[in-house]
Design a protein around this nucleic acid. Structure first.
Length: 289
DNA sequence: GACCAGGCTAACT
DNA sequence: AGTTAGCATGGT
């Protein structure tokens, strides 16, 4: 928990002392985010919220560069969900034997609370696509439309706000490699610029209502809606069901279970932590099935 | 050349 | 309401 962290910090760095249960690779390379670059094992640089952050593991410490303690507490602790008690959640989830294995496989996995619009755009791009290609397209988008951020003599790009993406045409997105999703992006970005989504409402309404709101936008179905809700930290009672989750859920529900059946089972068994359970399962499935 | 990847839309019964 | 072809692209 947050209160137990011990910090050392200066003008341009923050060190969290003794935080053994945060793993960079299983957090940044589990398909929830697309803008973290591995420099070397346990050493990453990423762009989020218009800022560049460098992080590496030093024994049981985590060291963050290009930030200070004030910014770290207001921005990066929520982003990295360092304010969430994963020990308690993992304990609850581990009552299920499959999840026990999945949690033991990646005990340092954290969900992220990412910018809502960025998550929405990235997961429209994710449909019938693979993670490597999604990263490439997102990078092309940021290069074309993002703002410069310089750090350590290098220029990085922020993820553009939707108002800046409104000028992009279908052909622009095609040239970035977005393929048939280009049309969805143009349509949805326009709709969002006309009338934005009330994220607070998405938190307070029922899950079915939240899914319905998102599915009004072109390119968003049940699976993408659940990803947006989960990876923006909007709600955790979701269960994004892609091909990997369908594979691993077959061990609970028999061969090729329907999405309906999966969602029903997940909400009954994993309840309000279903989204977190899904993330451990997805990561486990990708590396073990 | 098939088949696959964090699926969705549109056009069918 | 439920089922299915078609879709851009790059890697294996």
């Amino acid at each position: 928990m947050l209160s137990t962290y011990k910090f050392e910090h200066g003008n341009d760095f923050v060190r969290i002392c003794n935080i053994p249960n945060f793993d960079l690779s299983s957090t940044f390379e589990n398909g929830q985010c697309f803008r973290w670059e591995k420099i070397s094992p346990d050493h990453y640089i990423g762009v989020a919220m218009g800022k560049v952050l460098e992080v590496f593991k030093d024994g049981d410490d985590l060291v963050f560069y290009n930030t200070n303690i004030k910014e770290f507490e207001s921005l990066w602790i929520p982003y990295l969900t360092l304010d969430v008690d994963y020990e308690q959640i993992k304990q609850v989830l581990s009552k299920d034997p499959m999840l026990k294995k999945a949690v033991e496989f990646a005990p340092g996995l954290h969900l992220l609370r990412q910018n809502f619009h960025e998550t929405l755009i990235c997961f429209i791009l994710s449909s019938n696509n693979n993670i490597q290609r999604i990263k490439k397209i997102v990078n092309n988008l940021c290069q074309a439309t993002g703002k410069d951020i310089s750090y350590n003599g290098k220029t990085y790009k922020s993820f553009p706000p939707i108002t800046d993406m409104q000028k992009l045409t279908c052909e622009d997105f095609m040239s970035m490699g977005a393929g048939y999703r280009s049309k969805y992006l143009v349509h949805t970005i326009n709709a969002l610029c006309c009338k934005d989504i009330d994220v607070e409402h998405l938190k307070n309404c029922s899950l079915d209502q939240a899914r319905k709101v998102l599915q009004c936008y072109m390119g968003i179905g049940v699976k993408v809606a659940d990803c947006i809700l989960l990876y923006s930290g909007t709600r955790y009672d979701v269960f994004p069901s892609d091909v990997w989750i369908k594979k691993i859920m077959a061990s609970y529900l028999g061969e090729s279970p329907s999405v309906e059946k999966i969602l029903k089972y997940a909400s009954e068994v994993f309840g309000r932590y279903a989204g977190i359970a899904q993330q451990y399962l997805f990561h486990y499935a990708r590396f073990n099935l």
